[in-house]
Design a protein around this nucleic acid. Structure first.
Lengths: 127, 127, 127, 127
DNA sequence: GTGGTCTAGACCACT
DNA sequence: GTGGTCTAGACCACG
């Protein structure tokens, strides 16, 4: 997870996405306190406003909660995190099936291929 | 399969990719005669040179063969097509596992989820 | 009915308003003896002068009466209380119609809607 | 509908609210083209960014749609407008019942009073 | 110190 | 010209 941004997509979206991944994958634990907007923005080398926008969007998603004066925290709502994780997974899966379909594999064929992937490269790291 | 191009990647690469998909997915049949570079370039609204380059690359991949005077044909080498299809599939699969890993699903978990996807939306189009 | 004040309006006005509500809604009974200015001010965490001013205004409204030496009492004049209650209600009602009008409901439409509200959430607390 | 703002609430929220009222009340017609961000911001004497934020929120509410280069338009989705209108009305109604309850009128009593308001002040303007 | 808001001014892509 | 994004820097309320 490097700290650089594609030039063709809004930075705040990429920030949002990265932090979303960190939360759903468990790198940020539920209830964990986040660094301040200012510190995070320095770390990512972006303007504080940009970082704030990303965090505001995450709040809207229910993954982060702001405590007026004491900082921001990853939500404690495990359910919300699970839901977001499922949602992200569904998007990846749909996209995957769609692309496989484009090169000529039906959904059932794709499932069959994947099922046989067990043996190969056992990089099975849990995040 | 629309006919427009992303502005941030070389068009010839995108053309090459699209035709590669058409071949491996069977939309272009083995041995089928392709339209002339000129006609193809018109159809895609690109410069003939750009189309030419895409086709040259496809020749290097062995998916297309030029018959000196009579035009270009999709290869008859079913094996080459199968290989290319497999190669593309492997790239998609690797990428898919990698992204799923980013949101916290191990390879085996991903396989399990996919296996259960059988029931949902049976858009099982055989290309 | 919480015991904290908006920082942007005079506290004595807010005190007055709160006590007015308590009287017209019946939480303070007609003829009931009020605590001393001193005690009331402590309870509300305000300066005694502020509380004094609120009570003075209530006297002018006729809702509270001072008995020279024995303290202040909620008025016995049921009529005065009823009038004040009606006046407050009329203000609320006018304001309500006005706001409904702003979002596009005429007075008669508003009445119609309200009339249908009977069924929903029967939080029908009698003061 | 004057063009000044309360100093105690974010301007962008007040802008959003005002435009929301204009849309649901029909002052802005469905499909109508809005002035540009810049012009609107000048009209309201606020920074363009502030106006843009308000409009962005309205887009999220589905009341406004941005056409990349040609400007912003009030949504054509009458259903969305109706829903927002209902939502706003429900908030007003709940708040109204709640305040009436504070001064001692139960829900049914309030409904009764309102129903009798027909005769008085016939300001029945449809916005 | 924290987050929240606002302004000012810039650059970009699109057409 | 339009909307979208980003930066820079300021002020405020809260505690």
């Amino acid at each position: 997870m490097t700290w650089d941004f594609a030039p063709d997509r809004p930075i705040y979206l990429q920030l949002q996405e990265l932090m979303k991944l960190n939360i759903v994958s468990g790198k940020y634990s539920p209830g964990e306190k986040l660094a301040s907007v200012r510190d995070l923005s320095i770390e990512a080398s972006v303007n504080p406003n940009t970082m704030q926008r990303a965090l505001t969007e995450l709040e809207r998603d229910g993954l982060v909660q702001a405590q007026r004066t004491s900082g921001r925290y990853v939500t404690n709502d495990m359910e919300a995190i699970r839901n977001m994780k499922n949602e992200l997974a569904m998007e990846l899966i749909d996209s995957f099936f769609s692309k496989m379909n484009e090169i000529g594999y039906s959904k059932s064929e794709t499932i069959e291929i994947i099922s046989k992937a067990k043996e190969a490269g056992n990089k099975d790291g849990n995040s």
